[in-house]
């Protein structure tokens, strides 16, 4: 079922920018058009590019957002989310938790 929806109408997750647009819906309650426009502006691409694997594959690697392929050394998981948080200027709870704890240790 999830794969069917993904093929028919989904943005494609890490293959494209689906996870990034989803974060805008959940952190800022943005509707789909507003969320796409926000992410596209931050990444300096068009909203159509956000669902284009040819554009997003390269851009994600360049930005350190993590790509769907298993590239050794490429950011993934927590490291990728730290970059996403910074570029999109949004909170990512687990990243903020790591930052907060590191700050507490230093002070």
């Amino acid at each position: 079922m999830p794969i069917a929806h993904s093929v028919v109408s989904g943005m494609g997750g890490m293959r494209t920018a689906g996870d990034l647009v989803a974060r805008m819906q959940f952190t800022r309650k943005m509707r789909i058009s507003e969320a796409k426009t926000y992410v596209a502006d931050k990444l300096k691409v068009s909203t159509h590019d956000l669902s284009d694997t040819a554009v997003m594959r390269e851009l994600r690697e360049e930005l350190g957002f993590g790509v769907v392929l298993g590239i050794p050394g490429d950011p993934k998981g927590m490291e990728a989310k730290e970059r996403i948080s910074e570029v999109l200027d949004i909170p990512v709870n687990c990243v903020d938790r790591v930052r907060r704890r590191a700050q507490e240790r230093r002070s």
Binding site: P2, S9, G10, M11, G13, G18, A22, Q25, A35, H48
Partner: peptide, 8 residues
Amino acid sequence: MGNQVIST
């Protein structure tokens, strides 16, 4: 194309 939405 361009009308894709988010999957949860």
